[in-house]
């Protein structure tokens, strides 16, 4: 009987012990996971000074090129000293080499809130910096921007006379509508009860339609040209071919015109001949009165 009790007691102890060990292991594992600590990697510390941290908190992520590489360790407000502002100490999982032109800024992770610190190392070819404190840019506050936009809109509405301008536009539109209703202007005449302009427009459209119908039927020069009966087109084509043949002949120096254009000696001869003819004509002009007078004078005898 006593042995049975001892066995039961031992069983209970083993079960309770196993349960407790299991729960402690789970608690330990959970604690490691929830703390998001990477205990077995070497950490690097970096300090950034901001003028305003916009609600950044310790434990917020530090992101480089969109990848989380550490988190915010502490935030200290330094009112005085050589570097006044909010000193943010970062714990990075891997060392980060900062170059001139680096950037450190605080951004919102979502529209509902939450912040993270974004780091950019700067151009790779720029000189490397090794500073005690890096300077961070003041955060970009979406809500503040929205408030500025609303204020600007309000100022424009109240002081920029937007309502007055809108009222003027409406007045102008009203005036246009009144003129149209009164049948004034082209649009008014079209829309008015007096349908003269409309009739003219209709007649013009009818004329255009008639013309298009004639063209479609192959009537007139354009119609014949576009009709399926290709006689005119063939004639036109033959004429173009003949013209092309003549042009080619001229181009090749064939015929009188071709030779005249292509043969430079012929051109020179013609030019010389023309010169001589011009000289002969001039001589004849100078001698003509004398010749005429001589003919008349001697003709009398």
């Amino acid at each position: 009987m006593k042995k049975d009790w001892r066995e039961r007691e031992l069983t209970m102890e083993v079960i309770v012990g196993a349960f407790i060990v299991m729960i402690f292991l789970g608690l330990g594992y959970f604690t490691i996971i929830l703390s998001k600590e990477t205990w077995f990697t070497k950490k690097t510390e970096m300090n950034v000074v901001f003028g305003n941290v916009m609600g950044l908190r310790d434990g917020d992520s530090v992101v480089v090129r969109g990848m989380p590489i550490g988190k915010v360790k502490t935030l200290d407000l330094a009112v005085n000293g050589e570097c006044p502002g909010v000193h943010v100490s970062l714990m990075l999982d891997e060392p980060l080499v900062m170059h001139e032109g680096y950037e450190a800024k605080i951004v919102s992770t979502s529209i509902l809130g939450g912040r993270q610190l974004q780091l950019s190392e700067g151009p790779a070819d720029a000189p490397v910096l090794d500073l005690d404190f890096y300077r961070g840019k003041d955060p970009y506050d979406l809500m503040e921007d929205a408030a500025d936009i609303v204020n600007a809109a309000r100022t424009q509405i109240t002081e920029g006379k937007i309502f007055e301008k809108i009222r003027n536009v409406v007045d102008n539109i009203d005036e246009v509508v009144t003129r149209v209703n009164a049948g004034k202007g082209t649009l008014g005449k079209i829309l008015s009860d007096d349908d003269t302009l409309y009739s003219d427009l209709e007649a013009s459209v009818a004329s255009v339609r008639t013309m298009v119908t004639r063209v479609e039927q192959g009537k007139g020069s354009i119609g014949k040209l576009l009709s399926e009966d290709s006689t005119l087109y063939d004639d036109f084509s033959a004429a173009v071919a003949a013209l092309k043949s003549i042009t080619e002949g001229i181009e090749n120096g064939e015929g009188s015109v071709g030779k005249f254009i292509k043969d430079e000696s012929l051109y020179s001869d013609v030019e010389a001949t023309i010169g001589e003819v011009r000289a002969a004509v001039d001589d004849f002009r100078e001698t003509a009165p004398i010749t005429t007078f001589s003919s008349i004078f001697f003709g009398a005898f």
Binding site: E9, M12, E13, I15, V16, F19
Partner: peptide, 16 residues
């Protein structure tokens, strides 16, 4: 100690 383990068994394990 024995009594505590028994109570832990009754309260804990039997409530699982």
């Amino acid at each position: 100690r024995t009594e505590i383990v028994v109570q832990m068994f009754v309260f804990g394990i039997k409530s699982l």
